[in-house]
Design a protein around this nucleic acid. Structure first.
Lengths: 219, 219, 219, 219
DNA sequence: GATGAATGAGCCTTCATTCAT
DNA sequence: CATGAATGAAGGCTCATTCAT
């Protein structure tokens, strides 16, 4: 076995080359379809959109939850990568947060929020989520230190807002919700994040552990 | 026929008393079920939750769309009522907007956003939506006049934000999203709405007509 | 409500007339299809063979197990009826047993054996099974008293043999197994049941409780 | 090539040693899985249980029928070996039949019966079946000569009974059917085979050709 | 008018079989 | 040869919708 081959195997989790390619296609297709139609979208449609047979999707992701977890990981990691790059480049921390918000529009960060609960409990997804949370907390803490970010918001508030404000419309919604419209909402929210705070917020901001907690009264 | 009866018939669109009661029960049940499970929730479940047979639901609302329109009207009218009451009571306009935001949490305004597109084009729904828009525009204009509201946001921005930030989590989401958390997000956004504006917003704020427009590329 | 109507409702378990008719058709079709193809036969085929839509089958029998239980009850009750008739008519008890054996061929008693384990635990099926067992025990006890039946066999031995020797061939079996062939086997076995016993049997004959017991080592 | 190797190749139909080992593993696994789950058991499960890849199974047995034939041959040959050993050892012929019956319990003779029709027409299977039939006929004829076996039963009756009375319960059956219970049934049947006959049997006993005949009305 | 039942269409999942490594 | 992966077809089940009571 050649070194290249061994490296390829390691990078793809031990999958054969064609299988790894199919897996990636399926995750990408799922991200778009989930974004467009919600978490209950027909899996057959995802398979068709990925250009594979439906049974291939089941081979890679035996349950719908497995696929959701893979999409959440994928999106989380892209966002964390972007935030870490900004940190490493020495960008102003509030500007980095703005970049994260605006990138969320294209990166389909909204689908992640929709599916966080479903993906909860998976170790791989937890690792990816923790990385994203930590980098956002580092950004927030620096932005607070520069006096740009109000003191009473948490990284959880920020991540939740990105998720909710970039979340695509589900189902057959037909109202206009283009990039500009979403960006307006994100920028207004960002202005609300600036110090000094005009309003006192109720409760405490969510930690990531809170976002994962199962609310009482759910079956 | 007694005057009371005649009045009742008129108010309920010519329905018999028991039929009108069933209709109201169905709309209320649909609002809650749509909020909990999304716009594609099983109609049989709504009927069961309303305590009527499935065929009764179909008698009142021959298509799913008819039911969606009724729910959107119901929610729109509650919100418009609340806003008009605040106007009539002479409340400070920015405070009235804040009241509208916070009421949205309990009033399931979020489901309306999800379903705006589906309800689009229905004359009754349009009337209710226009009333809500107009009263919000009046509130916004007065709030701008007092110098509390930044100048570059529209009533559409405000309505859209209420919808998106109060929209319930779909499906089997299990992450915490209680009232306090939603209120935090709404209040941060409200702070972003205050004058003077810190950031210039891209594009133009949505008019109600924009919210109704079908985006290109949708099937 | 007329007395006739009330009686009809009672006799059909509260089902509407057409629903009861469909239910009966489905059970009869299931008996034949299970007999021909085994317990895992496609339910869609049973529905088609009963002349109803597949969803109608699911309305009456939400799980496959429910349908199996209904078939077992149906067959058990037919067999118990036959045995009780023979007892009431004062037929010689060993002759009555022979009649029960031979009737088993046409009555599809064999399918019952195939499905006993699946139906186990259902109260209605247990009641029907108990009735059958009791009448066979009464027959056996009288046949022992006349000296025709060997002393070391139980009603469980007899029921088990009827089931196993009349059980239809499953799947796509193509070997000849017509009525005469089955009757030969039954009659040979019946001769083996006659007193005096030529061979000592190992263990103890099964009680009905034994037939219901889950064997160790099953998952 | 060594003589041993040459002999091995001849005995295994020209297969390489490892291929022959795989083939044997597959047949043994198939016998157990067919016995436990019926003739329609998933072939992938048989492959997994044999410790080979699914495609390897298909290389050896291109169709399910080929595998069934191999299992029938395997079981037939074991039973014929046993019967011939008994004949050669000069055991009392009725005792030899009893041994054949009791051996059937462990030897999974029951699966053979289930699959006889499917295997029908295959030359190899026919040869194995003929050998078994012939040795049973020789046993039966000698047992008749000693006056132990009734005159009106055929080798086909005997083989059919072994098959039917040792056949395992299918699917998820949970009722007790342990070795003792099966042996009781076999011994009662054996007693029914003893001379003098108490009952006249209908029709004629099956010849092996009969067992192979396709009954009318089958698709 | 209200109800429960019937139905066909669609989605999820499994499995036999073929293909590429 | 042996293997894991891909695939279409078929069965199980749910749900929107129509029908009969």
């Amino acid at each position: 076995m050649s070194p290249q081959h061994a490296a390829g195997v390691a990078a793809n989790g031990g999958l054969r080359a064609d299988a790894a390619r199919n897996r990636d296609r399926i995750v990408a297709a799922a991200r778009e379809v989930f974004a467009a139609e919600g978490q209950k979208a027909p899996l057959d449609e995802i398979a068709r959109s990925a250009g594979v047979g439906n049974a291939t999707l089941y081979r890679h992701f035996p349950t719908r939850r497995d696929l959701v977890v893979a999409v959440v990981r994928d999106v989380s990691e892209r966002a964390a990568d972007r935030a870490e790059d900004a940190l490493a480049a020495g960008v102003d921390p509030f500007e980095a947060l703005r970049g994260l918000f605006l990138a969320g529009v294209e990166e389909r960060v909204g689908v992640m929020c929709t599916m966080l609960g479903t993906a909860d409990g998976d170790p791989g997804r937890r690792a990816a989520g923790d990385r994203l949370t930590q980098v956002v907390e580092r950004l927030a803490s620096r932005a607070r230190a520069t006096g740009a970010l109000r003191a009473d918001v948490t990284a959880g508030d920020i991540l939740l807002a990105i998720g909710r404000l970039t979340r695509p419309l589900p189902d057959g919604s037909e109202c206009r919700l283009d990039g500009d419209l979403v960006r307006r909402q994100l920028l207004i929210f960002l202005d609300g994040l600036r110090a000094p705070a005009a309003t006192q917020l109720p409760g405490t901001g969510p930690s990531v552990a809170d976002l994962r907690r199962v609310p009482a009264g759910r079956s």
